[in-house]
Design a protein around this nucleic acid. Sequence first.
DNA 1: TATGAATGAGCATTCATTCAT
DNA 2: GATGAATGAATGCTCATTCAT
Lengths: 221, 221, 221, 221
Amino acid sequence: MTDGDRGPDVAVTDAPSPKGAPTTARGVRTRAALVAAARTVFERDGFLASRLTDITAEASCSTGTFYTYFVSKEEIFLAVMEAAKDEMLHPGVPHVEASDDPVSVIEASNRGYFEAYARNAKLMMLQEQVATIDADFRQRRLERGEAFARRNAKAISRMQDDGLVDAALDPIMTSRALSGMVGRLAYSSFALGMQWSVDDLVETSTRLWANALGLRYRDDA
Amino acid sequence: MTDGDRGPDVAVTDAPSPKGAPTTARGVRTRAALVAAARTVFERDGFLASRLTDITAEASCSTGTFYTYFVSKEEIFLAVMEAAKDEMLHPGVPHVEASDDPVSVIEASNRGYFEAYARNAKLMMLQEQVATIDADFRQRRLERGEAFARRNAKAISRMQDDGLVDAALDPIMTSRALSGMVGRLAYSSFALGMQWSVDDLVETSTRLWANALGLRYRDDA
Amino acid sequence: MTDGDRGPDVAVTDAPSPKGAPTTARGVRTRAALVAAARTVFERDGFLASRLTDITAEASCSTGTFYTYFVSKEEIFLAVMEAAKDEMLHPGVPHVEASDDPVSVIEASNRGYFEAYARNAKLMMLQEQVATIDADFRQRRLERGEAFARRNAKAISRMQDDGLVDAALDPIMTSRALSGMVGRLAYSSFALGMQWSVDDLVETSTRLWANALGLRYRDDA
Amino acid sequence: MTDGDRGPDVAVTDAPSPKGAPTTARGVRTRAALVAAARTVFERDGFLASRLTDITAEASCSTGTFYTYFVSKEEIFLAVMEAAKDEMLHPGVPHVEASDDPVSVIEASNRGYFEAYARNAKLMMLQEQVATIDADFRQRRLERGEAFARRNAKAISRMQDDGLVDAALDPIMTSRALSGMVGRLAYSSFALGMQWSVDDLVETSTRLWANALGLRYRDDA
DNA sequence: TATGAATGAGCATTCATTCAT
DNA sequence: GATGAATGAATGCTCATTCAT
């Protein structure tokens, strides 16, 4: 399901390759070709069904070359994710911080998330698949989600102090729950094929989020 | 991730075995032993890592016998789920129906769900794994979730008509979102190892759910 | 060289196969075919150059069948040695025990050893090769040699007590040294291709052994 | 064990590199670095397990550079042995020549051998390993042993003529047998880990040698 | 029904060797 | 001379599936 427990907002590993980065320009090119090929193959066949030889064939290089840059399928998968990181963050997801209207911030955040998700739906499904298969990957994702959840929890806490948010809610669990809700919605929509528009997703999820926190929703009188 | 989008409440396949049920008493016993062994092995090693020979070994029968009752690993997995269905529904999750207090109903439902989840966490993780691997299983789960979501959506709709729930919410998407939220929470807690108590989970999720819908939360004056 | 440090006399492992022995008659036949094939292939190509597929081809079975009975090339090698054990002991190597004439006993023992060696020269060379490659095998051989050396040392000790043997010699080191001498001679002769007759080998080694211990050599007046 | 049949005394190949010696100073340095690295890696991992890339990595040079100086792993191994030749001979092993006391000469020779062996045990084991693997190397060693054995046999012959040594012994086989005995003892002690002191080894092997030949042992009245 | 031996396609992985820069 | 990326043949090993007994 989406990334870890994050829901809106994305952050991906930056673990360095165990096999040192290529020195020469040619090496850089080859490695990049492999990563690109891997993304293509993974998205087409899924992580499990993808064979290393499919990837090297797609990258037009020999089997051995794969092992010049990567140790395993898991590892090149991480590299694919790493390469997609910027792409997935691009939409500019503002963190929930001081601002005129908290609901607008949440809405913008959600919109950014859904749009990024739509653009990278295949990759997001892949993440889900790998997370259920690979405990390391799952752990890594969990930790990234942790960081994000804490940031969000802090924002919720602040709004509770300001009397804007239901004081009875546990900030961290609430953060997890609402992120999870949005993440799950995106997954259902783009990965499972539920046919919802981004606008509707944004509208409903933002309203639910705002209601849940006890924020006054923008358009309501 | 729970199954599909269900969140609270569980429903499992009832697809009949392609290999007709065993006729003799011995056959019934052998088949049952295989299903029990499969559950043990799947929970221990995960679906992917489990080999058919592990299952037959655990069931103390020969490799060939497996094929007397099942066509594939996928099929025996379905049988495991089928066998666990009752067990997982047991805690008595009342559907959201007419009653004095909607929030109490939601709370009871959530509690039932979290408790069932806790008891069957390994199996729930397995479901997640298989869903990301097997398109058929994913589809099946989606459909079951669909039915459940529609029932829930109907209840929400009714409450909107009665002026109890925020009328601006799309019932079906809301149903999905809130179920997803609870499902995700359970997954984080029992599968990923977040250390939350069932009471806290019930409390927070129920409050968020009630707030999100616009219901007045029980204890609040 | 030769086996462990034994020199005359042979004793081979009786470690049971980690993969349980076959249950059916067919299984027993197949396993035996594999062991026989392995001996043929090992003797023909050497341990290192032998590929598992060469062995299964020679045994007329599929690759997978190999793994029904053995875990690795090392393991089937042990089985080959085990199967050859009787064959190699056959010549009746009497232990050095009380008897009329110690020198005759030594001579008979040496003759038995050289004859067995000649019959199984290829296998003996294989043992050498594997011992330099595989630490486990080396250790195993060392331990078997240890037991044999102690037996021999005891006999030497007894003869020292009886005033038959040079009392200044350390029994255990002497046992090792003389066994090693004979083993090395056999290796040079049959494995390295030194062209010596068994009679000459027996004559010289026995005389050296007797002289070294300080025994009076039979034929000398 | 030990090298060929040599026992005491050591002599190593002086085959010239097929790839002509380096011309530039840098070349000389690189080649030397490779040989040193090879020794380190061979001693650490054994000949078989050592990969060319391990050696170049240890020598801090590129893979390609290896082929500037060597044709194969076998070839660099010979170079390592060549480089170690002096080191292994160093202890000054006097050949068995005219002298006051034959036993003293044998003793000095044995001591020199055991001490050299102890210093270069890893290399000696390597030699064993390679000899069982590489027929060329085995042959080369055999020939060197041959030369040494003949020298020794001549000395034995002379002593037989002088009535100092048992005339019934075949000089060449005796030479091989006794050298083999000492070589095997050294191997057991330093390569297999038998815990014997050099003094004890020298004492016992010299006494056995002297007895075997029929020489009167120094200390005996 | 039950058995368990036999099958073999399928895939990952290694590493000596080459060669363009 | 030195570099290190690229190569790809060679091989080990797994495991779902079949089938004779």
